[in-house]
Amino acid sequence: MRVLARRLALSPAVLSVAGALAVTTLVMIAAGVDPSLAYPALARGALMDGNLEYTIATYVPTLGMALAFAIPLRAGEFNLGGDGQLSLGGIAAAALALHAGGSFVVPLLGAALAGALLAGLSAPLRTRLGVPAIVSSLLLGAPAVALASYLARFPLAEPGTGLAQTPLLPDAARLAALGSSAYVTIGLPVVAVLTAVWLYADARTVPGYEIRAIGANREFARYGGVRVDRLAAVTLAAGGALAGLAGGLIVLGPPYRFVDGALTAPGYTFTAIAAVLLAAGRPPAIPATVALMTILQAGGQGMERDAGVPSQLTQIVQGLIIVIVAVAAVVRTRLAGMRG
C-alpha cells in the first residue's frame, strides 16, 4: 500500500497537476484574487448548483475526442485534425437525419464513417508521399471545417433565417435522454462502452499488442512481421471515426441541429489532447484525466461569476499542464540517457 501511494504521489500526472495548480495559485495571488474563493467557485461551477448535467454533457464529446487522439498515439501517430473530423461527422449526422429518416443509428454510423475517411487520408499521404500524419491531419482539418460551415450555411441551411444552422432534426433521430436531464443522453453509455472496448483491445488482444509495438519501435515491429503501415492506417481511421461519432452525438443531442461553429468553439480537441498528454498516453488513466480537464473547463464560468476570476484562467491551467508534462518528459529522457 505504501509503495502504491508513493508511486501515485510521484506519478507524472499528479506532479503536473500539482505544478500547474501551484503556478496558477501564484498568478491569482499576484492578481489580487483569493484562491480560497476561486477554487470552491470552480468546483461549484462544474459539479454543484445544477451544473453537473452540463459538465457530464461536455465530458462525453471530450472523452470521444481523447480517444480520437489516443488511439493513433499508441501507434506513434499524431491525429491533430480532430476539429475537422468532429465537424464533418456532425454535418454528416445532420444531413442523414434530415434526409434519410429513421432512428439515430444511421446518422451516427454516417458521422463515424465521415470522420474515419477524413483521418484515413493521412495514411496514404504518409506511406506514399512521406507526409507525417501530424502535418496532414492538421492541414486536412481546416478544409473539413470550412466544408461543414458551407453546408450549414447553404444546402442544409434552415429556410427563413439568417443563422448558419440546419433545421431542427426529426424526433426519431434525436438521442434519448437519461433521467430527467435532456442534456445527458445515451451518448454517455455509448462512449463509455467504446472506451471499455478500446481498453480491453489495447491490453488483451494481439492487434493491441502489435499497435503498442509499432508505437514503441516501428522498425523493430516491422522486422517482427507486423504490418506497420496497415495498422497505423487503421488506428488513424479509428481515431477519426471516434471524432466523427463525437460530432454526431453533439448534433443529435440538444439543440438537435448543426450550428456552425458550435462544435469547434468549446475547444473539445485541445482539452482532449491535454488530457491524453496528462495521462502520458496510458489508456486506463485517460477517462480520469478527461474528467479533470472537463471540470476545469466547465467550472471556469462559475469561477468568473462567483470569484471574479476570468474563465480564461482555466485555459492557462490546461496550457501549463501540457508545458509541465513536456518538460518532465524531456527531463526523464535525459536522465535515462545519462544513466545508460
Results as ranks from 00 to 15, higher is better:
Phe78Asn: 00
Met48His: 08
Leu117Asn: 06
Ala291Pro: 09
Leu313Trp: 03
Asn217Ala: 13
Glu53Thr: 15
Glu158Ile: 12
Leu139Ala: 03
Ile273Asp: 00
Val309Ser: 04
Leu113Asp: 02
Ala221Phe: 09
Ser103Phe: 12
Ile186Tyr: 04
Arg218Asn: 10
Ala177Ser: 15
Ile295Cys: 03
Val325Phe: 00
Gly115Ile: 00
Thr161His: 13
Arg153Ser: 14
Leu26Asn: 13
Gly81Arg: 01
Tyr183Gln: 13
Leu263Trp: 04
Ser180Asn: 12
Leu8Gly: 06
Gln312Pro: 12
Ala95Val: 10
Val197Arg: 14
Gly340Val: 07
Leu175Ser: 00
Leu86Tyr: 02
Gly261Trp: 03
Val23Arg: 01
Ala173Gly: 08
Ala9Pro: 03
Pro143Val: 05
Arg153Gln: 14
Val325Ile: 09
Gly208Met: 09
Gly261Arg: 03
Ile250His: 09
Val226Leu: 10
Asp171Phe: 15
Thr62Pro: 03
Met65Gly: 01
Val226Gln: 09
Val106Cys: 04
Thr333Val: 14
Leu67Val: 02
Trp198Tyr: 13
Ser87Asp: 05
Ala221His: 11
Leu277Trp: 00
Ala291Asp: 10
Arg2Phe: 15
Ala237Asp: 01
Met338Leu: 15
Thr289Cys: 13
Phe258Leu: 07
Ala213Gly: 03
Ile324Tyr: 02
Pro159Glu: 12
Ser181Gln: 08
Arg332Thr: 09
Ala329Cys: 09
Leu168Val: 06
Gly89Met: 01
Gly337Leu: 15
Val197Glu: 14
Leu67Pro: 01
Ala112Tyr: 02
Val323Ile: 13
Ser181Glu: 05
Gly337Asp: 15
Ala203Leu: 14
Asp171Tyr: 15
Val190Met: 13
Ala112Gln: 04
Ala57Cys: 10
Trp198Ser: 03
Leu98Glu: 10
Asn51Ile: 05
Ser122Phe: 07
Gly187Ile: 02
Leu292Ile: 06
Arg222Gly: 14
Ala262Gly: 11
Ala144Pro: 03
Phe69Cys: 00
Leu296His: 02
Gly208Arg: 07
Arg212Ala: 10
Leu231Trp: 12
Val327Ile: 13
Phe154Cys: 10
Val197Phe: 15
Leu52Ala: 13
Ala111Gly: 06
Ala43Pro: 05
Pro266Tyr: 02
Leu313Val: 05
Leu108Glu: 08
Ala57Asp: 08
Ala280Lys: 01
Ala92Asp: 07
Leu249Ala: 00
Val184Leu: 01
Pro143Glu: 05
Tyr268His: 11
Ala95Gln: 06
Ala30Asn: 12
Ala173Asn: 08
Gly76Ala: 11
Arg218Pro: 08
Pro61Lys: 01
Thr271Asn: 08
Ala192Tyr: 05
Leu80Gly: 02
Ala280Leu: 04
Leu118Asn: 02
Trp198His: 05
Gly261Met: 04
Arg6His: 14
Ala326Val: 07
Leu63Ile: 04
Ser149Val: 06
Leu88Met: 08
Leu113Phe: 05
Ala97Ile: 09
Ala57Lys: 06
Met303Arg: 02
Ala93Asn: 10
Ala9Ile: 01
Thr333Asn: 13
Leu8Asn: 07
Val193Pro: 07
Ala285Thr: 03
Leu175His: 01
Leu26Asp: 11
Arg339Thr: 15
Ala94Ser: 15
Pro284Val: 06
Leu67Glu: 00
Gln301Val: 13
Ala196Thr: 11
Val135Arg: 07
Ala307Leu: 12
